[in-house]
Write a protein that binds this DNA or RNA. Structure first.
Lengths: 238, 238
DNA sequence: CGTACGTTTGACTCTGTTCAATTGCCGTGG
DNA sequence: CCACGGCAATTGAACAGAGTCAAACGTACG
């Protein structure tokens, strides 16, 4: 048994590589054990499939274990707005707590896997694990802060600034997960980027081309390479 | 703070008219009593004064008891983005939980009064009052949903639609508080509206004038009267 | 009661959209 | 393996909506 690779059945969180990004942040090993017992159901979501849809009854949050998601809301007239892109360790479904119904659609942009977190149980155990409650509140609050940043982006930035801000945001999140901050593959289309940024896909494409012209980045379809991070940042004075 | 006036009344929440809008929603009288003992510090904020500023250390949430606030964030280059307008019964400061620092400035747009809610104490008692915890989570989640709606507005609506959506939103909130839904006074300037909606003040003014042309509303400076709610709603197909 | 600020309106400019044509890429099936 | 079809991305040209600049007016606040 000693040199056997153990397959995590019991406490999935304890052995998960995303421990430092996800819900267990700040918990001791005993507490992680308790949380792990609650989060014991995984679910695979193929590229293009829905994790959940608007209007369905809310039971669980989902933590992205592997893959990439987008969430979006719909107007009556069919217009849609991408509200976020979600990568490993991030929680999906926080919007649904309020009315106990999902308020957006969540779609996998590549073959993905999520951990299901039954929300009422999470609330229960967070009563006895204060640090879990605290961390959960911070996650929700962080979501609000993130949304305010998007409001700033949509409300007062020009096309190029929006795209750069978006790239820098992705870059930072990849880096935090151990991937390159200057070399990555976009999982979403130009249209999805544009929708998120309040721009048309052609405008996104033109902005990419311009940054490439200036040799700040190279764009090969979905593959992005950032050559000059400083100049990129200077353009949005970060 | 020097311009703070604190008053101590036993269980302020129990006797507060905002009981059904604010934190105490869904609590029994005993629980309201406990909450009221925690929320015993009121603070007056004169028009134009700051309730809190970006970067200062977070201790408390604030519930608006009387008056009207705006919150906004600042870019390095001085650009600002209004992130919300807040009326009676609404909580200010949810953004600050995440980094334990306020991420925005909050300014009173008229002489106002807030109830201070020490956050760590709120977390403590919410451990023993599950319905308080549940309601607090719903408030935070509702904030996220609201922000997503603003993202939709900023990302895919035209100037007139944005303004109408804004008016309908205010109208509904006034109505919920027992005020007229068709006749109200704006507390903010055209510039503040524009900033919130991602428009210039001139564009806001023109959109108001156009709606008045069409006899859908009348605008007398800050005083708005909605003559034809149906036509107003039809323009954004709600 | 006067002044400073907020608002309205007009004329012009510019950024991003729309429409359209073309190219590039990738998976499927012959 | 290559050819095909369909989707995604790029690029150009014309257009429209909102921004900018400027002037005049109204009001409410001290």
């Amino acid at each position: 048994m000693s040199n056997t690779i153990s397959i995590n059945i019991k406490s999935s969180c304890a052995s998960c590589g995303l421990r430092d990004l996800c819900l267990p942040v700040g918990l001791n090993s005993n507490e992680i054990e308790i949380l792990g017992n609650l989060v014991n159901h995984k679910r695979a979501v193929k590229r293009g499939k829905y994790l959940h849809r608007t209007g369905t009854s809310f039971q669980s949050l989902y933590a992205v274990r592997r893959g990439f998601f987008k969430t979006f809301i719909l107007e009556k007239d069919g217009r849609q707005q991408v509200t976020g892109f979600h990568m490993t360790g991030e929680l999906i479904g926080l919007d649904a707590i309020s009315a106990e119904i999902y308020t957006c659609d969540a779609v996998a942009l590549e073959d993905s896997e999520v951990c299901e977190v039954p929300f009422s149980k999470l609330e229960e155990i967070s009563r006895v694990i204060p640090s879990l409650m605290k961390h959960f509140h911070k996650i929700m609050s962080g979501e609000i802060v993130k949304d305010h940043e998007v409001m700033m982006l949509l409300g007062s930035m020009k096309a190029e600034e929006r795209l750069i801000t978006f790239l820098l945001n992705l870059s930072g999140r990849f880096s935090k997960r151990g991937y390159s901050s200057v070399d990555f593959v976009l999982r979403m289309t130009r249209e999805e980027i544009g929708n998120y940024l309040g721009l048309k896909l052609e405008t996104v494409s033109r902005a990419f081309s311009k940054l490439q012209e200036e040799s700040i980045i190279s764009v090969n379809n979905k593959h992005i390479h950032i050559h000059d991070m400083d100049r990129l940042k200077n353009k949005v004075d970060v």
